[in-house]
Computed example of a mutant assay.
Amino acid sequence: MKSNKLAMSLIAVALASTCGLSLADTVVKLGFGSPLTGPQAHYGKDNLNGVQLAVDELNAKGVVVGGQKVKFEIVPEDDQADPRTGTQVAQKLVDQKVNVVLGHFNSGVTIPASKLYADAGIPELAVATNPQYLKQGFKSAFRLVGNDAFLGKVLGEYAVKSLKAKSIVIVDDRTAYGQGLADEFEKAVKANGGKVARREFTTDKSTDFTSILTSIKANKPEVLFYGGADAQAAPMAKQMQALGITAKIMGGDMLNTDKFIELAGGKPAEGHFSAVSGAPIAKQPGGPAFEKKYKDKFKQDVVLFAPQFYDSVYLVAEAMKKANSVEPAKFLPALKAINYKGVSGTFSFDAAGEPKNAPVTIYGVKNGKWDVVVVK
């Protein structure tokens, strides 16, 4: 009899365990891709921090989708800001059957990787700014920030009309991001009646620009547009000062970091400009509160797009709740129709996946920090 009671107890425990499993959280895998090593790691880690902060909050609150509690898990991958590595990362995320991909950061990585996600039917939310990303026509692709066409338009107009630059030279790093933004800047300069005196190119690994700058000096540039990242723009600023070139550097969002000022070494960073998709964090709907949470958790300042990556997690969660499903094919339509007020702004997308609200902020370095110049 004792034996029967023991057996019944064991069965009861097993049934309880089984019930526990059936009631366990549904795991939602958030694929993540950005550079986590190398000279662009500070961007990628900032992006990952934004995702982590949102995931921790949602898991603490408890999210229910279709009557089932879900648990969000990040599947982070280091794409090294390299297109070849990026496609390998994309295939790895597809093979792991992630529910969505948050990333990538670089346009050169995002564009080829997006085809793999589209073929697998996995939604992707990226901050890649090259227009070609969404011109491919993939229905699963979304952009979280404004594209280069608008960013370049704002920068080119500012260089000609506000800075009154007569001699403008362009240097780009030949990446999809750097070259794409430089192309749009050149179009905008010409559309506003300006002229590009010279155009040169380098690579995203270069740090010695002496030869290029020496040849450019003869053009007496007032503006030098650089399409590329802070790790190259900073030494360029130092070398310009050493050569007596007084041109203002202008660039995109990848210049807008404390690292640019740090690497430039103080004074050489002064007076240069960058443009960033989105409002200044202090002017974002939930920017100040987000900034405080971010600093409290990670003991560092926001680098660039952490707020948008944070919002991307909430966007996905909201779409899943509206669709009553965590399956990509089922929540994708809800994502397309979303209208969500996040910390960085209100998100809704047009038919191509472009954000409908995408302001641009121009910043300038003044007294060792990036200050807002104008919001367009």
Rank of each mutant, 00 (worst) to 15 (best):
L243V: 12
L243N: 03
L243R: 12
L243F: 15
G244M: 13
I245M: 11
I245N: 05
I245H: 03
T246H: 14
T246M: 07
A247T: 04
A247V: 10
A247I: 05
K248I: 07
I249R: 01
I249A: 11
I249F: 00
I249C: 09
I249V: 14
M250H: 08
G251N: 11
G251L: 05
G251W: 03
G251F: 02
G251C: 08
G252C: 08
G252A: 10
D253G: 10
D253N: 10
D253S: 14
M254L: 13
M254T: 15
L255H: 09
L255D: 06
N256S: 14
N256Y: 04
N256M: 11
N256K: 12
T257I: 06
T257R: 04
T257W: 07
T257H: 07
T257V: 11
T257N: 04
T257M: 05
D258V: 00
D258N: 12
D258R: 06
D258Y: 00
K259S: 12
K259Q: 15
K259E: 15
F260V: 00
F260P: 03
F260R: 05
I261G: 04
I261N: 10
I261D: 08
E262T: 05
E262V: 01
L263K: 10
L263H: 01
L263E: 14
A264Y: 10
A264L: 06
A264W: 06
G265V: 02
G265A: 11
G266W: 02
G266T: 11
K267A: 15
K267C: 01
P268N: 10
P268Y: 09
P268C: 10
P268A: 09
A269I: 09
A269F: 13
E270F: 02
E270C: 09
E270T: 09
H272Q: 13
H272R: 00
H272Y: 05
H272F: 06
H272M: 14
F273E: 03
F273K: 04
F273H: 13
F273Q: 12
S274D: 12
S274G: 14
A275M: 13
A275N: 10
A275H: 05
V276T: 13
V276G: 08
V276I: 15
S277Q: 10
S277C: 13
S277K: 00
S277R: 01
S277F: 12
G278V: 11
G278N: 13
G278H: 11
A279H: 00
A279W: 05
A279V: 06
P280M: 06
P280C: 13
I281L: 14
I281S: 02
I281Y: 03
A282H: 01
A282E: 15
A282S: 15
A282N: 09
A282F: 00
K283N: 14
